[in-house]
């Protein structure tokens, strides 16, 4: 089985499971709606201030939402010993990782697509800079959270306090990515500066950690 075929099989399986249960989408979507509402109460900004802080708020909301989605990602593979079965199968382990990461990317991106318009409505946002660049920031930023999150979720299911461990591992490593997402989003909204440097940083971060994840995942899957 080639890497691509195995990845696609994993991805389709995850999408089908999610389509039938809608667990991750419901929980994550509702959670980020709550975060948006709570933030709106906590900060009551003017239009100018809103532009400056919205980049930070929006990514904090997505970071928390991603944690909720990612925490469930491996849990269902533990039931019925799916991971043990995978270890025995000839399919490449990195395909499992890639399929999972792509699946999580689709879930988190879907939630973001619902939440971002709400942010725009509640904060009366209007981008001064080039708004089309926001799409790049969201694609690369979400992948940065999800690729490391999928990997660290695979580490944290092996610990005693699964759900707590994931953010403890993901947040410190994600510091540069979060900084880049927030800076790029803020620059696009305020039009103060060019966001290109930060988008490039995100791309570099994505390339480095996608490679590291693909290379190290087989080791982690077979760690017993």
């Amino acid at each position: 089985m080639t890497l691509w075929a195995a990845t696609r099989a994993n991805l389709i399986k995850d999408l089908r499971l999610e389509w039938r249960s809608k667990d991750a989408l419901n929980a994550t979507g509702f959670f980020s709606l709550l975060v948006v509402v709570i933030f709106s109460f906590s900060f009551e900004p003017t239009a100018e201030e809103a532009r400056r802080i919205a980049g930070g708020l929006i990514w904090v909301a997505f970071l928390f939402a991603a944690i909720i989605a990612l925490n469930q990602t491996w849990a269902r593979e533990l039931r019925h010993h799916v991971l043990d079965g995978y270890r025995l199968s000839p399919a490449p382990a990195s395909a499992l990782f890639l399929g999972k990461a792509l699946g999580n990317f689709i879930f988190v991106a879907a939630v973001e697509a619902i939440t971002a318009p709400l942010f725009i409505i509640f904060y009366n946002l209007r981008a001064v800079g080039d708004a089309s660049l926001l799409i790049l920031v969201f694609l690369f930023g979400t992948w940065a959270l999800v690729v490391n999150g999928t990997f660290f979720a695979a580490l944290s299911i092996r610990t005693r306090n699964r759900e707590v461990m994931l953010p403890l591992l993901l947040f410190p490593i994600s510091v540069p990515a979060v900084l880049a997402m927030v800076q790029a989003t803020t620059f696009i909204l305020t039009g103060d500066d060019s966001p290109l440097l930060w988008i490039k940083l995100l791309i570099g971060y994505d390339v480095i950690f996608t490679t590291a994840g693909l290379l190290l995942f087989p080791t982690v899957l077979n760690a017993e």
């Binding site: 410190p172 490593i173 510091v175 540069p176 480095i208 590291a212 080791t219 982690v220």
Partner: peptide, 21 residues
Amino acid sequence: TIAAALAVFGFLDVPIVYMSI
């Protein structure tokens, strides 16, 4: 094993953190 994997991720991250800040 999982600690070693995390150590690699952590060490890769340090130069990126430095440049970004």
